[in-house]
C-alpha cells in the first residue's frame, strides 16, 4: 500500500472507532438519560434542514432569478446566519432569574445588525466605481465586470437563467 492509502485507511478506521465510542456512550451511559429522545431530535433536525430550510432557500433563489440571486446572496446568507445565531436569545421563553443572563435588548441588536448588512449590500456595488479599487478574481455582484468597460452598477452579460440556485 502507498503512504496515501495507509493514511486514508487509518483516518477511516479512527473515524469508525470514534463513532463506535460515541454511539456506545450514547446507548449505555445512564447519565445521558433518554437516547430515544436524542434519536427523535436527530431525525427532526435532518427533516427540518433537508425538507424545509434548503428547499425554501432554493425556491427563493429560483423566484428572484439569476440576476438578483447573485446580488442577494450576500445579504441573504449573512442576515440568515445572524438570525440563526440570534434565535435562542430572541426566543428563549421565561424570564431568567439571573440578571446577567440575556442582559441586552436583543431585538434591537438583531435589527441593528440586519440594518448594517442591508447598508453594506447596498454600498458594495458602488465600490466598483472607485477608481483603482480591485478585488482580483472576485466578481462583485451587481458591479461592473472586470474589463467589461460598461458603467458600474449594470450587468452587461446575461447569465443563463432558470434552474435552482
Amino acid at each position: 500500500m502507498t503512504g496515501a492509502r495507509i493514511l486514508r485507511w487509518t483516518v477511516g478506521a479512527a473515524g469508525l472507532a470514534a463513532l463506535g465510542y460515541g454511539v456506545s456512550t450514547l446507548l449505555t451511559d445512564p447519565q445521558v438519560g433518554d437516547w430515544h429522545g436524542v434519536l427523535r431530535w436527530l431525525v427532526l433536525a435532518l427533516l427540518l434542514h433537508d425538507g424545509v430550510l434548503v428547499p425554501v432557500t432554493l425556491l427563493l433563489g429560483l423566484a428572484v432569478g439569476a440576476r438578483w440571486r447573485a446580488r442577494l446572496r450576500l445579504p441573504f446568507l449573512v442576515a440568515g446566519s445572524l438570525t440563526a445565531v440570534a434565535l435562542p436569545v430572541l426566543l428563549r421563553p421565561g424570564a431568567t432569574a439571573n440578571p446577567s443572563v440575556l442582559p441586552l435588548d436583543y431585538l434591537r441588536g438583531w435589527v441593528l445588525s440586519l440594518a448594517v448588512v442591508g447598508a453594506v449590500a447596498l454600498l458594495l456595488p458602488l465600490c466598483r466605481r472607485i477608481p483603482g479599487l480591485r478585488f482580483p478574481g472576485v466578481r462583485i455582484p451587481g458591479g461592473r465586470r472586470p474589463g467589461s468597460g460598461a458603467r458600474g452598477g449594470r450587468r452587461t452579460g446575461r447569465r443563463r437563467s432558470g434552474g435552482t440556485p
Partner: peptide, 16 residues
C-alpha cells in the same frame, strides 16, 4: 453527557 457522546459520533463520522 449527550453533547459529549454526540461529539465523538460527529468527529468519527467526519473522519470517515
Amino acid at each position: 453527557q449527550t453533547h459529549w457522546a454526540l461529539a465523538w459520533v460527529l468527529v468519527g463520522a467526519l473522519l470517515l
